[in-house]
């Protein structure tokens, strides 16, 4: 698999990153190097090996259906660049 400038632009758009031409140019070989390094894993024969879902042998813990959190609006909004009337206020988005 080889990454092109188009791929870099696509991934950047999905990540909401604005990249300049120089950055795009630099990203193409960088991403290709990373992918190439990861693709070395393809050399290992994994026939009959179960996919690894977690590195620790542990069970997923479930929670009881109890309300014991929330009701902390000030804390939740405290890092927001803008908050009005108890809402986060963001630049108008209508899809």
């Amino acid at each position: 698999m080889s990454v092109t400038e188009k791929d870099v632009l696509h991934v950047a758009k999905l990540a909401r990153l604005a990249l300049g031409d120089a950055e795009i140019e630099r990203m193409v070989p960088e991403l290709n190097n990373i992918l190439g390094w990861v693709e070395q894993l393809g050399e290992v024969n994994t026939d009959g090996v179960e996919p690894l879902t977690a590195v620790i042998d542990n069970q997923l813990r479930l929670r009881d259906d109890v309300v014991n959190d929330g009701d902390c609006r000030d804390a939740v909004l405290s890092n927001a660049p803008d908050a009005q009337h108890g809402f986060f206020a963001v630049p108008k988005v209508i899809e």
């Binding site: 939740v76 803008d82 963001v90 630049p91 108008k92 988005v93 209508i94």
Partner: peptide, 14 residues
């Protein structure tokens, strides 16, 4: 999201 509460902002209720 509420789009009609402010002329230039959208309000977010989580």
């Amino acid at each position: 999201l509420m789009h009609d509460q402010h002329p230039t902002m959208s309000y977010v209720d989580l």
